[in-house]
């Protein structure tokens, strides 16, 4: 999987590149409008992560360029502008998703993952962790042959953990992923705790393995080989 990261902030770029590379993507970087323009013109990518405000031009123009080339690449806009207008314009121009800065890297990864799955397997890929088989289209989870019943939120949480496996995922990040950032929970993450515990118990009850570890007060980590 080949990713193009177009972002002008080097410190943020480092983090994105480091984490996405860790996830097995091949990442290329462009730190300005011109650099992005060159890369888009020369190479094919599976996913382009695009900042709108760039030195040298507007990221939306790069999006238009991609669409003019009939590129198959999925486009994820990452913008500092929390403006509905930009979002609508971006999505109308053919972007697949839109995120507002600041964001959690796990969220970025989850969205890139969803985009890749949608684009390359038309959503048919199953995710397999040991004996757990997850079908993202039907949104079902099987342990060997038996269906494991999860609530909608538990399923989403499991997928979030799996996509970001071996990484400490903070409670804020989980809360925002599951409930959106509209619901200000005032640093009270009981709900996240309860859901994670339920998920943990259900998985352990079927598989006998406790995949999810608590990391001090920081969050949780889904570990698997």
């Amino acid at each position: 999987m080949k990713l193009l990261l177009i972002e002008d902030e080097p410190l943020l770029m480092d983090e994105m590149e480091a984490y996405l590379t860790e996830q097995g993507y091949r990442c290329e970087k462009a730190m300005s409008f011109e650099a992005g323009e060159d890369k888009i013109a020369l190479y094919e990518y599976d996913v382009v992560i695009l900042d709108i405000t760039l030195p040298g031009g507007n990221g939306l123009a790069l999006l238009q360029m991609l669409k003019k080339q009939h590129s198959e690449a999925g486009v994820l806009i990452v913008s500092a502008k929390d403006s509905l207008n930009d979002k609508l314009v971006g999505l109308n121009l053919g972007a697949d998703d839109y995120m507002t800065k600041p964001f959690h890297l796990e969220e970025l990864n989850a969205r890139v993952n969803a985009l890749v799955r949608r684009k390359s397997f038309k959503g048919n890929a199953q995710i397999i962790i040991d004996d757990l088989i997850i079908d993202p289209v039907a949104k079902t989870v099987f342990y060997k042959e038996t269906l494991v019943n999860f609530t909608k939120k538990e399923y989403e949480l499991l997928l979030y953990f799996i996509v970001n496996k071996n990484r400490v995922v903070s409670k804020q990040s989980i809360a925002e992923h599951l409930w959106g950032d509209h619901y200000d929970m005032a640093d009270n993450f009981d709900t996240v705790y309860v859901h994670t515990m339920n998920l943990r118990k259900k998985i352990a009850a079927h598989t006998g393995i406790d995949y999810i570890k608590t990391v001090y007060g920081m969050g949780y980590k889904f570990t698997s080989a």
């Binding site: 902030e9 410190l11 943020l12 983090e15 994105m16 600041p102 964001f103 990040s173």
Partner: peptide, 18 residues
């Protein structure tokens, strides 16, 4: 824009630290 980007950096670095 100017505030969100540094915030993004701080957040991602804190994530890295964790």
């Amino acid at each position: 824009h100017e505030i969100q980007t540094p915030l993004g950096i701080i957040q991602s670095k804190l994530d890295r630290m964790s």
